[in-house]
Design a protein around this nucleic acid. Structure first.
Lengths: 132, 132
DNA sequence: TTGCTCCTCACGTCACGTGAGGTGGC
DNA sequence: TTGCTCCTCACGTCACGTGAGGTGGC
């Protein structure tokens, strides 16, 4: 993976970002102070927002306008969402492991003879095995 | 499992519940209206709070007082917490399944000879097996 | 009767969004 | 210069907790 993809590249100045998100520029400054969004900065300290930041702003807007959540709540909700997504990925990874293991286990049980037969042929030519 | 355990039994009337949670009784009524807590009711519609309800009230108090979250936020946070706990239980169940399967798989691989040896002795007495 | 319960309505406080006012660099 | 950026301060609105006021059943 490369470090930053297109979505992560900070490109919009605050005025454009605010317009894209349908918000007041001052609101974006408030959100940054409360650490809800972390735009990049130019050397001259002008804020630069990425597409990901814009998406985040829209999500915050949904929580505050539609759901009526305040900013303290938004912060915690976003953290929980992140933890949920991480855990969801963990579950998916484990699901793969479980089905893979169960497939192997079934394989191992269905065909033990085949494997053993191979182990038998490594005996020296002409030798006999006596059954009890 | 029995349906209700000790924690779930609604026993405290609103005045006692409010005292235990360190809140105003009226606040408890507000929380019920917003569906943050669902106390039981007597036939005469007097609210009855369980220990679980009291714990829930204390959790809400922590979110509102310490974290500054409003009630809309509390509602969503509690839902997310529940989903996280459910998912956490799923992960634990899967972990058990993974380790159990991997143990069996290792067992199956470490001792194929033992199992095959058994399969060999079911041959009729005195019969011979010729190696290639 | 006392002390609880139920409810509704009103007020004070605080969070937050909007906007004004003044600055500085492309 | 124009239009952006940066910042701080102030005001209006709304959510929510507190409490009053009036009711009814152990």
């Amino acid at each position: 993976m490369s470090g930053k993809n297109r979505e992560d590249r900070p490109v919009y100045m605050i005025g454009v970002a605010a317009q894209l998100a349908g918000m007041h520029p001052q609101t974006l400054r408030i959100y940054e102070r409360k650490k809800l969004v972390r735009p990049g900065r130019t050397a001259k300290s002008t804020r630069l927002y990425s597409q990901k930041d814009i998406d985040c702003l829209k999500y915050i807007q949904d929580l505050t306008q539609t759901e009526g959540v305040n900013l303290a709540g938004v912060k915690i909700i976003m953290e929980l969402q992140k933890r949920l997504e991480d855990l969801q990925r963990t579950v998916e990874g484990m699901e793969k492991r479980v089905t893979e293991n169960e497939r192997r286990l079934a394989e191992e049980r269905a065909a033990p003879t085949r494997r053993y037969a191979y182990e038998l042929v490594v005996l020296p030519k002409g030798e006999l095995v006596k059954a009890r």
